[in-house]
Design a protein around this nucleic acid. Sequence first.
DNA 1: GTCGATGCCAAGCCGCTTAT
DNA 2: ATAAGCGGCTTGGCATCGAC
Length: 283
Amino acid sequence: MERAKELGFPINPHTTVCSDIEQAIQLIETWTSKRESLDYEIDGIVMKIDSVAYQESLGSISNAPRWAIAYKFPAVEATTRLIDITINVGRTGAITPEAVLEPVEIGGVTVSQASLHNADYIINRDIRIGDSVQVKRAGDVIPQVIRPIVGVRDGSERAWSMPQTCPACANPLIRLPGEADYYCVATDCPAQFIRLIEHYASRSAMDIDGLGSKLAVQLVDDAGLKTIADLYRLDVSDLLELDGFAKRKAEKLIAGIDVSKGRKLSRLLYGLGIRHVGKTVAE
DNA sequence: GTCGATGCCAAGCCGCTTAT
DNA sequence: ATAAGCGGCTTGGCATCGAC
């Protein structure tokens, strides 16, 4: 940091060296109360091993160094009403329940939805539709439903259970013994296919410029896409039939699809969306 | 002016493999 | 035998930019 400063980079003036863990804890306590005095917001403090030699011998795991970690201040919590629980069908057919919340301000943003992860998450916490719930932003970012406030129930709350059938294709949902998620295992489920198209076109797969989630819906619902291969049978005149498409946008998308023919085999493999074949495995 | 795509900030949970 | 590591999968919000 000192060298960076010498080179003219702006560095944070509050950087402090602590000689042991007690001093580090003391520093956190000091800043917990002084936090409001800064003219910018902070969500915690980064602790680093000062010795470069120790940093090198500690190394890294995956993306994170073992010699630096963030202490995060407790996230702000808010109370709101759980209006409904909807379910989402993922690319692999995994079913994820989602909380529809009465919009509430938390840490400067409005939270109206949160993932509920799986059926057990809801059942174990006894979360019911209509409940008042405590919500926070985990790591000050990701909206999370923590627990229901049982004491304020008035009897109108309804217990939730996982639907028996897929909301998109009406085929039965299946949960394998020992697994947490329910799956739609239909091979022709439109919700799964829309997600597959999104994934296939995404930046780290075939990187088709201009094809995102909204367009995937349009292509499947309105342009009659049935397989990934159908993408390559589209032409400009097909796209001009669709809402919001004019010449320029249609030509750009066709060009983007064309360019994707030249992508590496590993990107194609990843793009096909085979379970347990992620980016690393594909490469 | 509006809508969608994208890149950025991220965490929880799960299933499996590897290290201790 | 247990813990740590890791990849995979899913999600929310915001700023910015381009197309319509």
